[in-house]
């Protein structure tokens, strides 16, 4: 095996799992709710409980990935550059002062997709390759 091949193989081995773990995260809504795009600010407002109304006027119902899923940590890192401990502390303040509730926490990706299909106001984040025809991508999150 030439040095070049070895190098290429090594490179692939390093890059492949990374590419797998860093698949694009996308913010998705119900495909029939009429929303084409959402700004980063409005997604922040919805998931951080500041303003949960979609441009169409219907209440936004954010859905979180299950605890422990890498998507969840990555989402909040990309959204507000915070880790989950900070997000947790943020919600502790709002819960114990009787304000907004945190997003509903789903048990699986299947449940997320199911909620997106059934609830007009549902909004969630998934890996791009998990999106199916029942959902529409309204924001792509950059690494």
């Amino acid at each position: 095996m030439s040095i070049t091949t070895t190098l290429l193989l090594t490179l692939c081995l390093i890059l492949l799992p990374r590419a797998r773990a860093e698949a694009d995260l996308v913010v998705v809504v119900n495909a029939r709710n009429g929303i084409e795009r959402l700004t980063l600010d409005s997604v922040i407002n919805i998931f951080m409980g500041r303003y949960r109304q979609l441009p169409s006027g219907i209440p936004a119902q954010p859905v979180d990935q299950p605890d422990g899923r890498p998507e969840k940590a990555r989402f909040y890192r990309l959204l507000v550059n915070k880790d989950l401990a900070e997000i947790n502390a943020y919600w502790a303040r709002l819960i114990f002062s009787g304000r907004t509730s945190p997003p509903y926490q789903a048990k699986s990706t299947a449940e997320i997709l199911d909620r997106l299909a059934r609830q007009p106001g549902a909004i969630a984040y998934i890996e791009r390759n998990q999106a199916d025809p029942r959902v529409r991508i309204v924001l792509e999150l950059e690494h």
């Binding site: 947790n88 502390a89 943020y90 502790a92 303040r93 114990f96 002062s97």
Partner: peptide, 12 residues
Amino acid sequence: MLADSRLVGYAN
């Protein structure tokens, strides 16, 4: 500001 959650140490 923050006064209504001043007892919640974890939030501060």
